[in-house]
Nucleic acid binder design. Sequence first.
RNA 1: GGUUCCAUAGCUCAGUCGGUAGAGCAAUGGAUUGAAAAUCCAUGUGUCGUUGGUUCAAUUCCAACUGGAACCA
Length: 305
Amino acid sequence: MDKLLVIVGPTGVGKSKYSIELAKQLNGEIISGDAYQIYKAMSIGTAKITKEEMQGIPHYLVDELNFDHPYSVADFQRLARKHIETIISKGKLPIICGGTGLYIKAVLYDYVFEKEEVDEEYKAQLKNYSNEELYEQLRIIDAKSLETIHINNRQRVERALMIAHSGKLKSDIVDEQQHKLLYDATIIGLTLPREQLYEKINQRVNTMMETGLLSEIEQLLNTANKTNIEEVWNLQAMKGIGYKEWKNYFDKVATKEETIALIQKNSRNFAKRQYTWFNNQLEVNWINVTTKEETLKRALEIFKK
RNA sequence: GGUUCCAUAGCUCAGUCGGUAGAGCAAUGGAUUGAAAAUCCAUGUGUCGUUGGUUCAAUUCCAACUGGAACCA
């Protein structure tokens, strides 16, 4: 099995900084395991690493898509695996660094995403039913999938119906998998005491404002090739934290201060959800971030073990 | 200095005609297989400001004190 280093952790903990240091020491190249840093023109709000900060370390899946393009786990899985091979063929260590738990798990484990064509007509039809009706439909088609889907989670109920509609059942696809690691992956999680992390997150949002988050948003709205502004706000990329919150500001129903506070809160809530994922879905070796030297030393120890 | 009002969960407040209390927000835990920075689920013990008094029983009534607010001087 190919050796791999994975760096995870909540937003704001300092993953990028450590990934660079580790890449330098381990002769590695970095693949971003992140759902939003792939978008060009979305840099401040995604806390994207700058060219200078990269210090010449090659990065993949950063700045590769226009913000009106969709991006999914399946895309990430395919692209990341391709990049892993490329990096290994150069005799270097692939380092996945990011905060999107599902994406990272989908690469490391044998998640299978069948080829599928979206039946737009069927998809539109689903909108006509209530949550209860959709849930009952799914019970008939794929009862087993209900075990992990709550009736109110319409997004997932619809998705499971879509999967069934295009061929295999979601529960069958999952059952056929081994749920084993495909790589010799060392997963390192960077963490901070909750209060400290929240303080850092709040501060980071303030810094984003100082470095021009608002003008980044304005630019996105201006360059969007859409006649209807609502369509822009509905883009997948605009659902990101630090972006979606500005809709109310531009609609003049929220002040700038309220918007900033909301971004901070959503970021904190997100960090908590990330912990839930990393704690329960992946085998993470946690390192409490202290000084740079000590943290790096711990990371190298864990990797070499 | 005087009068009146307020003091209950991290915050804003409700409430108990005396039987130890509950909303919103925040927070916490969890689920997660093509939107995942998305979507969804669950969770409310707090010396009811302090000290006394009345009472079988006080967070509730009474008094003093402490802190705060408004008004009068």
